[in-house]
Simulated scan of single mutants.
Amino acid sequence: MMAVPVRARAKRRSARQSRAQQTVQRILDAAAARLAADGLVAVTTTRLAADTGLAVGSLYQYFADRDAVLLALHQRRMAALAEMLDGDLARLPARAGWETVVDHLIDHFLAAVTEEPGYVALIRFVASRRRHDDPLAVIGALEAPIAVALRRIAAGLPPAEFDVVLRVAATMLSALADLALCQDDVKARGAMLYELRFAMKGYLARFASR
Rank of each mutant, 00 (worst) to 15 (best):
A149E: 12
D67L: 02
V43P: 01
A68E: 13
L54Q: 03
L110N: 10
P117V: 00
A155M: 11
I106K: 06
P145D: 04
A55D: 10
D163R: 14
T44A: 05
D88N: 04
Y62S: 07
D86Y: 00
V168D: 08
A121K: 00
D103N: 11
A112K: 05
V138E: 05
T171H: 05
A141E: 07
F162R: 14
V43C: 01
T114K: 01
A82N: 00
L70Q: 01
I106P: 12
P93L: 09
F162L: 07
Y60V: 01
G97I: 04
G87Q: 02
D86E: 11
A82P: 00
M78S: 13
M172L: 14
V69Q: 02
D67T: 12
A127C: 11
H108F: 01
V164W: 07
D88H: 11
A36W: 03
A80Y: 02
A175N: 11
A80V: 07
V164N: 08
A144W: 13
G53K: 04
G57L: 08
A55G: 08
R95N: 12
A96P: 14
S128V: 09
V120F: 00
M84E: 11
L92Y: 11
L150T: 04
A80E: 12
A154V: 14
G140T: 07
A94C: 06
Q75A: 15
H104E: 13
V148D: 01
G140V: 06
E161R: 15
G156C: 12
L73Y: 02
T52E: 10
H132S: 09
A144R: 15
F125W: 05
E83R: 02
L81F: 00
A72P: 04
G156W: 11
R76H: 05
V113Y: 02
V165T: 09
D133Y: 11
T46Y: 12
T171G: 12
V120M: 02
V148L: 10
P117Q: 01
R129W: 08
D133V: 09
R129F: 06
V69C: 03
A55E: 10
P117D: 00
Y60A: 05
A72Q: 08
A68I: 01
E143P: 11
Q61M: 10
W98H: 10
E116Q: 14
G53T: 04
F162C: 08
V120I: 15
A160G: 08
M78H: 10
D163V: 08
A64S: 05
I153M: 10
A154W: 14
M172R: 13
A79T: 12
V113C: 04
L73P: 03
R167I: 04
L40G: 01
R66V: 00
L54C: 03
A111P: 05
D103H: 09
L150S: 03
Q61E: 14
Q75S: 15
A72K: 04
L173Q: 09
D133Q: 11
A155H: 13
A112M: 07
A68T: 04
